[in-house]
Design a protein around this nucleic acid. Structure first.
Length: 885
RNA sequence: GCCCCUGUGGCGGAAUGGUAGACGCGGCAGACUCAAAAUCUGUUGUUGGCAACAACGUGCUGGUUCGAGUCCGGCCAGGGGCACCA
């Protein structure tokens, strides 16, 4: 860092822009004017609405640069739309429940509530220092009893509507966080927060029936044309729709249940004639039943579980099977039976947990069949082969093929399916199965119902009571919210709610006998699945206010990290549909436009012992083009490492507070917007921050350098501009026009470049008469207003310096004069055989023949043609001339 | 393995199929200054040339086109997502 910082104030007021003084001043002005307050429902304004939302933060205690970037992006849009005449809703809140609060409670002996609200206070102050155009009157935290009380009411609505179920099932148990995790929260077999390998446990849990909406959620993706294709693809894959059939195999060999029918799922019913065995998941109920009195099978199951479902173990894991001795009757081939194995590659979580295997047309089945010497029976042959080639192909595959044939083809060796292509064969096979009552066509989803029970304290209590006589009894609505008790202890592992002496003991709301409260709390993703609807009317008596949600939803622009592509964004889409069904909102898709911004990265530094060093401990000198890093405290050598996402573990973080103290909020905002397109990662560098800081000063100087020159300029447009003044006006209107388009399309890095271009044009201009002064003033005002969404405080200061009494925030967006943008003459390139040889400036409305003649007359063009015959001349008006010889 | 994205100067990045490198960072040279900081001016893709200028240049390689960073095919590299999904 260099030494010149805004702390050193010059006595001359115009010399240095003092961000530390100006920023709080203007924030206060905005607040006093209520500039960012928005009415809940449609007022008399008649203005169109625009809802800008950034994913609300978890109150960890401090904001980080990722927050600065996220909220700056949203703020530019919000301020711009406001200037364009929209009623803008731009709220802020806190996703405040979660494990970190409990961990802090255990580590630092604090109460999660106090810890959370203290953090919120600290982060609110930090966010306010950025100068965001937020309607703070709408602020809430999801841990406010008022908010989660409404969430409990929503849950009861869902319960009544049959959108909730309580099921005993295998769940993902995080042994470190001591809680259940949703499938979406298990990454590579480990808990998404703790990183600990997840265990399987059978528990009774509350589920939200998201699978009821699987088809809708999938179809709805097609309507989200303003979402990144990447996110839509990820959701599509997550939902994982596949069409196929259930087939019921009658099993022989189960003594106590001779009519047992094994249900399997397949997407390839057309290959049934090629079946050579059936396989059960190690966790299939039948496997468990057989294992009860079979030690060898128990040992096999254990072996499968050890390999685990994690990591690349799966990739290299060998197929393993255990022959149960049972056999399954083939549905189509009279008298044929198939051996039934338990196989490690069959997942209980997908389909029915059991398969039939056709080794010739499935790679896994083939691997298994080769290992256990099971038959390989090809039943699909490539179409484009002749009969002899097909016969050869089949023989080769059956005898010693190691690559299953999964492509399209024609059915062979398949009885009534012979000759049909794959699609037709599937359909015919399903019809036959259905006629025989041995199967049915079905659609299978990868998506599971959403398990929302968490065995934790710091979350929204699930509003039900367990009564020995009445069973599950919903808490009566007049008793909501079910408030978390404050007097809890964290000295032992487990759920503090469960061991609280009195909280869970209540009388049954139905029969009045002693009963127990549910002590599980909601997954925190429930909290964030509807907050955008609550923001529309945060004080509403019910969860939502229909007039307000009808006015404001959908969110017109949603901004956040791509890490929520599945979790939060899928859950919110589900919640919106469920709420729509119950009348809480009037639409299906909550977020019309989604923007996923890139991360903020920084160089990493390590000392001689390999320990990470924070940037604040490192100084960098540039000597002869090479950068040398040293530790500030003792000058010890520091190794500069790769550029990585800012993270605590690598210590490569920069504290936004420090940056705002040093340079001001506008400089941070400017830098965040300037270097990279917002969807890409941006690297925070001192040099870049200083460049942004220098520009804020230059901007200020440009506006304030010649106050006398600009004083007392009339408002009427002069009509006697000289060439230079006209050129400045053109540059200003052009820059404004392009910048407006850039902001509309979220290309903020280009918008920044337009401001630089305009600043450069103004710098190079000297007014030589009154009209020139007028032009300069016009350009300056355009520059200030155009930069206002990005650097709002500096813009206000400049706007006031230009003599305006109404703040920039309440000034309309300037409109570029199109007549000034279109120039009379254009410069067009002249190519010979596609190679640029010269350029020519010619009247914009010159006809093609004139342009062609002028182009051919150019000396360099003549040289390039070199006496050859001109075969063709292509003239693209205003763009280019290409002479073909 | 499957799907998606990205490859452009020293760096971040601009370029509706039409003058590649806008704008910024960094570098170099100069002005101002006793000196420094700050600021301002010029310059800056590579190679050759005093210069005018020429040649070459968007990961590689074919193609379409009057014209390709952009479109199409095939590779290579980096990043991300999914993954024994029947």
């Amino acid at each position: 860092m260099k030494t010149d910082q805004p702390t050193a104030m010059s006595p001359r007021p115009n010399d240095r822009y003092n961000a530390r003084a100006a920023e709080p001043k203007w924030q206060k002005v905005w607040e006093e004017r209520g500039a960012f307050r928005t009415p809940d429902a449609a007022g008399a304004s008649g203005r169109p609405k625009y809802y800008v939302l950034e994913m609300f933060p978890y109150p960890s205690g401090r904001i980080h640069m990722g927050h600065v970037r996220n909220y700056t992006l949203g703020d530019v849009i919000a301020r711009y739309k406001r200037a364009r005449g929209f009623d803008v809703l731009h709220p802020m809140g806190w996703d405040a429940f979660g494990l970190a609060a409990e961990n802090a409670a255990m580590e630092k002996n604090l109460h999660p509530k106090g810890w959370t609200y203290d953090n919120i206070a600290a982060m609110r102050a930090q966010l306010k220092a950025i100068g965001l155009s937020i309607d703070w009157e709408r602020e809430f935290a999801t841990c406010d009893p008022e908010y989660y009380g409404h969430e409990q009411a929503l849950f009861l609505d869902f319960l009544e509507a049959g959108l909730v179920s309580r099921k005993k099932s295998m769940v993902n148990w995080d042994p470190v966080d001591n809680t259940v995790l949703a499938n979406e929260q298990v990454i590579d077999g480990c808990g998404w927060r703790s990183g600990a390998p997840v265990e399987r446990r059978e528990l009774t849990q509350w589920f939200l029936n998201i699978t009821d909406f699987a088809d809708e959620l999938l179809a709805g993706l097609e309507t989200l044309e303003h979402w990144p294709e990447k996110v839509r693809t990820m959701q599509r894959n997550w939902i994982g729709r596949s069409e196929g059939a259930k087939v019921f195999f009658t099993l022989e060999g189960i003594a106590d249940d001779p009519d047992y029918r094994l249900e399997i799922f397949t997407t390839r019913p057309d290959t049934l004639f090629g079946a050579s065995f059936c396989a059960l998941s190690p966790h299939h109920p039948l496997t468990q039943k057989l294992a009860a009195d079979n030690e060898a099978l128990q040992a096999f199951i254990k072996k499968c579980d050890q390999i685990g479902t994690s990591e690349e173990a799966i990739e290299t894991a060998e197929k393993m099977g255990f022959d149960t001795g049972l056999t399954a009757r083939h549905p189509f081939i009279e008298g044929k039976t198939l051996p039934v194995y338990v196989a490690n590659f069959v997942l209980m979580e997908y389909g029915t947990g059991a398969i039939f295997a056709c080794p010739a047309h499935d790679q896994r089945d083939l691997d298994f069949a080769r290992k256990y010497k099971l038959p390989v029976i090809p039943v699909v042959a490539p179409k484009e082969m002749d009969a002899a080639a097909q016969a050869g192909f089949i023989e080769e595959l059956a005898a010693h093929g190691t690559n299953a044939f999964t492509g399209d083809g024609v059915a062979v060796n398949s009885g009534f399916l012979n000759g049909l292509d794959v699609t037709a064969a599937k359909r015919t096979a399903i019809e036959k199965l259905e006629a025989m009552k041995l199967g049915q066509g079905t659609i299978n989803y990868r998506l599971r119902d959403w398990g929302i029970s968490r065995q934790r304290y710091w979350g929204c209590p699930i509003p039900v009571v367990h009564c020995d006589d009445c069973g599950i009894v919903p808490v009566p609505r007049e008793q909501l919210p079910v408030v978390l008790p404050d007097d809890v202890t964290f000295d032992k592992p487990g759920n503090p709610l469960d061991r609280h002496p009195t909280w869970k003991h209540v009388d049954c709301p139905k029969c009045g006998k002693p009963a127990r409260r549910e002590t599980d709390t909601f997954d925190t993703f429930v909290d964030s699945s509807w907050y955008f609807a609550r923001f529309c009317a945060p004080k509403a008596a019910g969860p939502t206010d229909r007039a307000a949600t009808d006015r404001w939803l959908p969110v017109d622009q949603y901004i956040g990290g791509v890490e929520h592509a599945i979790l939060h964004l899928l859950y919110s889409r589900f919640f919106t549909r469920a709420m729509h069904r119950l009348g809480h909102v009037g639409l299906d898709e909550p977020f019309a436009r989604l923007f996923t911004q890139g991360m903020v990265n920084h160089e990493t530094y390590r000392d001689a012992d390999g320990r990470w060093l924070p940037p604040s401990d490192v100084t960098i000198e540039t000597a002869g083009g090479t950068r040398i890093a040293k530790r500030i405290s003792d000058g010890a050598a520091v190794t500069i490492g790769s550029v990585e996402k800012m993270s605590k573990s690598k210590k490569n973080t920069v504290d936004p507070d420090d940056i705002i103290q040093q340079y001001g909020a506008d400089t941070s905002r400017w830098f965040m917007l300037s270097d990279s397109p917002p969807e890409r990662d941006v690297q925070w560098t001192d040099a870049g921050a200083e460049g942004a800081w220098r520009f804020t000063q230059r901007f200020w100087r440009l506006v304030t350098a010649t106050p006398d020159e600009l004083a007392e300029i009339g408002t009427a447009t002069p009509n006697d501009f000289d060439e230079a003044s006209l050129a400045l006006r053109r540059a200003a209107h052009k820059a404004l026009d392009a910048l407006t388009d850039d902001i509309e399309n979220l290309r903020f890095n280009r918008a920044v470049a337009r401001i630089y271009e305009l600043a450069n044009a103004i710098s190079g201009f000297t007014a030589s008469n009154e009209a020139g002064k007028w032009a300069k003033r016009e350009a300056l005002e355009m520059m200030v207003l155009a930069a206002a969404p990005m650097m709002p405080h500096l813009a206000e200061e400049c706007w006031a310096a230009l003599g305006h009494e109404t703040p920039a925030v309440d000034t309309e967006w300037p409109v570029a004069d199109k007549a000034l943008i279109v120039e009379d003459s254009v410069t067009i390139a002249v190519q010979v055989n596609g190679k640029r040889r010269d350029e020519l400036t010619i009247a914009r409305d010159a006809d093609n023949e004139t342009v062609e003649r002028a182009a051919l007359a150019l000396e360099k063009v003549g040289k390039a043609i070199d006496g050859k015959a001109v075969r063709k001349v292509i003239v693209v008006p205003g763009k280019i001339v290409n002479v073909v010889v």
